[in-house]
Structure formats: structure tokens, C-alpha cells
């Protein structure tokens, strides 16, 4: 049995997420969404919605702050040029308002942090974790700790975790973007064909996505308007897992495990903005963050005849390293 940690709402909504919607006439769906169910012992939580927020008796000022956080999470492009320098919103990777299982639902961070984080080798709190996605996934720089926008974003995360006991450092159902190992070595060639067939209609054959009237619409999967070489999703297993659990849009789990790895192989073999931790030498940077990060990606390796990440291109921003990337030493 898995432990339900939010009762009874969580259980009810979860069942509707797992029990497949069936048409009125009880015909089976042509494109069912088969989200894997919880494993024994997993902690299950279904985050509350914005409608639940309105119906709650929280202080009006807190509601206003959470609404602001939600708005920033869904439309992070409003911070374009200030904190965000690519075509991403937080919801571009944390799909379904940051609530969906297997789309790295963000509420978990609100209940397991502060905790040690291998990526930067020190203890991070929720704000620093959010700042991490600004520096890498958004190729930008975070709002100041404690600033209005940071507090609003953190409040939205915390709200989503309503009812979950803190510091249950256990196994959370739906976390991250899990995927099994592929049966065969992932293939660039197969990945390219699959990408063209299933993804290019939205993300474009050159990976740049689609802009409408100069605004980001479909996000870029590589190139200057995408996430940078320090982002968690450059790891092969993370991208493959993201694809398997979430893409093509509206048809998750339609790509097989093997196909997801193949497409990830193809996307990962393209250029993107420099890792903000760049030392000026791609080989040295790869080496420095090898164990904790780069061994899972192609940064600093040769792919398709090109040494990836060997450049000074930081995309649209005019700096390399945002202020928040610094050690914490207590000295």
C-alpha cells in the first residue's frame, strides 16, 4: 500500500488522474493517457488548485501573493530581459501548472528543503532552488532573495504542498522525470527522424520553437533561446524522461522508452548557451563538474564532428555568471 498524505481530496483527484477518462458511450479512447500509478510505500500528494485557493480561508494578502506566484510561474516571460533571457516559462518544463506527476512537480521542494544539494555541494533552501532554475533553465539571473517576486514564487510552491508533512525525506510519487534504461544504444539518426516526425511541427526543424508576434509560443529545444549547458535537463536521462512522460504535447507516453532516448540523443547533440559555471575552458569546466553533473551530458565532448560548448556564446544575456552561483561556507 502507498501512503496517502493528503486525505481525502488527494485520493479522490488522484483516482481521476489515473482512471482513464472514457467517452460517454464507453468507447475506449484512441489516445489514452496512462500515467503510471504509485509504487508501494510511496508518498502520494495531489496539489490543490487555484480554485481551491479562492475557496480557502487564507488571508487575502496571502492569496494575492500566491496568485502573483502562479502568474509568474505560468508567464515567466514577463521577466524577460530582467531575469529571463530565453523563451522559457517555469511551466515549460513543470507542466500542468507545476502540479503534474512526472513533470517534476515543484511542491516537493517546499517540503524537503533546506537540504544538501550535490549539484552545488551545499545546503539549499526553496528560494535558492528556484534561483537554480533561473540561472540554468531560464538562462538568466534570479530575482533577489526575499524580493516580491521571489516571495510570490516561493509562496506558490508552498501552497501546492498544502497538507504534506515537512521533512519526510521519503520516496515521493511523481517526482522528476523518471525513465527506464534503453534496450539499445540511443541513436542520433533514429532520433533525428523521430524528431522530424513528432516534434518539429511545434519545436521547428532547427530547434528554435515558434514565436508568435515576437512572443515565445513553442519553446526552443536547442540554440540561443533554449536552456543553457548547466541546466538539469541537458542530462541524457532527464531529457529522455521528460519526453517520455510529457511529449508530444497532449500525448504523453506515446513515445516508447527507446524512442525517447533516441530523440534526447539527437537534441542533446546540438549547441546551446554556455554553462554559467564556465571557467573559460570547456574541458576544464566539464572536468570540474564531471562527477556531479556533466558525466550525464555531452557538454565538452565531440558529437557529430563538433566539440560542444567550446564557445563564449551566452545567448541573449550580457553576462556569464549570475550572482547566486556562489559557495556557502559559513566562514
Amino acid at each position: 500500500m502507498f501512503r496517502k498524505i493528503t486525505q481525502p481530496l488527494g485520493a479522490v483527484v488522484l483516482v481521476s488522474l489515473l482512471a482513464l477518462p472514457v467517452k460517454a458511450e464507453d468507447q475506449p479512447l484512441r489516445f489514452p493517457v496512462e500515467i503510471p500509478g504509485p509504487q508501494p510505500g510511496q508518498l502520494v500528494h495531489t496539489p490543490p488548485t487555484m480554485e481551491d485557493l479562492e475557496a480557502s480561508n487564507l488571508h487575502p494578502e496571502l492569496k494575492r501573493t500566491i496568485r502573483r506566484g502562479y502568474d509568474l510561474f505560468m508567464n515567466t516571460q514577463q521577466l524577460r530581459g530582467e531575469n529571463v533571457f530565453n523563451d522559457m516559462n517555469c511551466k515549460s518544463c513543470h507542466m500542468g501548472e507545476g502540479r503534474l506527476p512526472f513533470a517534476a512537480p515543484v511542491w516537493r521542494a517546499a517540503v524537503v528543503l533546506p537540504n544538501f544539494r550535490p549539484k552545488n555541494q551545499h545546503v539549499n533552501n526553496l528560494e535558492e532552488r528556484i534561483a537554480g532554475c533561473f540561472s540554468f533553465s531560464m538562462n538568466g539571473t534570479p530575482p533577489e532573495y526575499g524580493s516580491d517576486n521571489m516571495v510570490a514564487l516561493a509562496a506558490y510552491h508552498r501552497w501546492l504542498a498544502r497538507g504534506v508533512p515537512i521533512y519526510q525525506l521519503g520516496n515521493y510519487y511523481g517526482r522528476g522525470y523518471p525513465i527506464d534504461e534503453p534496450e539499445e544504444e540511443p541513436s542520433y539518426t533514429r532520433g533525428e527522424a523521430l524528431y522530424e516526425e513528432n516534434c518539429a511541427i511545434c519545436h521547428a526543424s532547427d530547434g528554435s520553437g515558434l514565436r508568435v508576434d515576437g512572443q515565445a509560443h513553442f519553446p526552443a529545444v536547442w540554440g540561443d533561446l533554449s536552456y543553457n549547458w548547466g541546466a538539469g535537463i541537458i542530462r541524457r536521462f532527464t531529457l529522455a524522461g521528460f519526453i517520455r512522460n510529457n511529449m508530444p504535447l497532449g500525448q504523453p507516453y506515446s513515445m516508447s522508452v527507446q524512442e525517447s532516448w533516441d530523440i534526447a540523443e539527437y537534441i542533446n547533440s546540438h549547441e546551446r548557451p554556455q554553462d554559467p559555471r564556465y571557467t573559460g575552458d570547456v574541458g576544464e569546466t566539464r572536468e570540474r563538474y564531471y562527477e556531479t553533473f556533466h558525466r550525464h551530458g555531452y557538454y565538452g565532448t565531440e558529437q557529430q564532428g563538433q566539440l560542444l560548448g567550446d564557445h563564449d556564446n551566452v545567448g541573449e544575456k550580457d553576462f556569464l555568471r549570475p550572482w547566486n552561483l556562489r559557495p556557502r561556507t559559513y566562514e
Partner: peptide, 18 residues
């Protein structure tokens, strides 16, 4: 504009544009 993710009804605007 926001869809109904519980039933995996993706917001129409995610495809049909702003």
C-alpha cells in the same frame, strides 16, 4: 486558457496561440 490537466485537456491556447 488553463485547460483541465486532471483529464489531460491541455489548454487550447498552448497550441492555438496567444
Amino acid at each position: 486558457t488553463r485547460g483541465d490537466w486532471e483529464r489531460y485537456i491541455v489548454p487550447c491556447s498552448s497550441c492555438h496561440g496567444p
